[in-house]
Design a protein around this nucleic acid. Structure first.
Lengths: 170, 170
DNA sequence: CAAAATTATTTTAGGCCTAAAATAAATCAG
DNA sequence: CTGATTTATTTTAGGCCTAAAATAATTTTG
């Protein structure tokens, strides 16, 4: 009996070899590069123009979207950062007088955070500039392309969520 | 003479009002959410499976792509992080015996960093798992969609680079 | 009701990250 | 060649971030 294995055809050997996923890898790197590039740019402009950090801006943005404030836990979930992290950012913003923090009337464990009048004024000013910067960032895409990108990222988000589980932010 | 201004038609009033860029804003938030979601997932798996941090994995990935190593400056540029940051990550990896650092023969200011044999072995093992995780992450997209997303992110990258200036990584 | 489990937050230890200042070596200009 | 500039890295000060442990209040369960 012939002991040698028969030669494998192309399909079979490809199926046995661990599939390579270079395409997905490149896609991930490109997505990450885009995000990092924009994030650094925005961070720099916020610092230079308003002397504010990006996490503080983000936190204020969450508060500006609501009426009546948010608890630390809600902030943590929406910002997709850890609980303890929110504690310290809020601490800093309270120190700057931009944010208010008081115990929840319903739940004595919880703290409700909201923008002060000054905080809201300041945030709105920053938000206006921020909006223009972001528009500039994507100016190289036609409206149709932006729409497509939005849709594809929506699919990617669902796909990623299903592999890594819920990571908050609706 | 009639003192009242004539009523503005829809086009004109839209042109006078500062344009709103809610679409681009939503696009940016979605891009950021995707990146954060995937990054957190990968970070967690790297920690649980290999007890390694993402920045260390990234640094080793850069080294694995080259022969002959990279200087700290090259690493900093390719990883899109600050110089001082690279110094400390390399420091940690040298301590773990995964990476080698020695003065450049050409330039006495520069240090050349490369993977040790153990580092390369370990990285290759991680890279195999990482590749599968990323493939899983994008499994919800058809090949055609991945290709489209890749192209659109390419345009977005160019556009962002042109507004924020070069942020390295080709 | 009281013990157990859950939930909201804070604390702790440690790593990542940046900007800006400080070193030190290489290159340039006269 | 020498002073001035540029380049590669390190150091410093401070902020962000996480995981895990600790508190404290609420809810669930037996």
């Amino acid at each position: 009996m012939d002991e040698r294995a028969p030669p494998l055809d192309r399909e079979t050997s490809a199926a046995l070899r661990p599939a390579d996923h270079k395409t997905e890898l490149r896609l991930w790197l490109r997505l990450l590069t885009c995000a990092t590039l924009i994030e650094s740019g925005i961070r720099k402009r916020l610092r230079e123009t308003f002397d504010v950090t990006l996490p503080r801006f983000d936190l204020m943005a969450q508060l500006d979207k609501t009426t009546g404030g948010l608890t630390l836990g809600e902030l943590s979930q929406r910002m997709m950062v850890s609980n303890g992290n929110v504690t310290s950012i809020v601490e800093a913003l309270v120190g700057q007088g931009l944010v208010d923090r008081r115990p929840s009337p319903q739940d004595r464990r919880a703290q409700v955070v909201s923008l002060t009048a000054e905080g809201r004024r300041f945030f709105r000013q920053m938000a206006a500039a921020h909006e223009v910067w972001i528009a500039e960032t994507f100016a190289g895409l036609t409206p149709g392309e932006s729409e497509q990108l939005m849709a594809l990222l929506g699919k990617a988000k669902l796909s990623a969520r299903s592999t890594f589980g819920e990571g908050s932010r609706p």
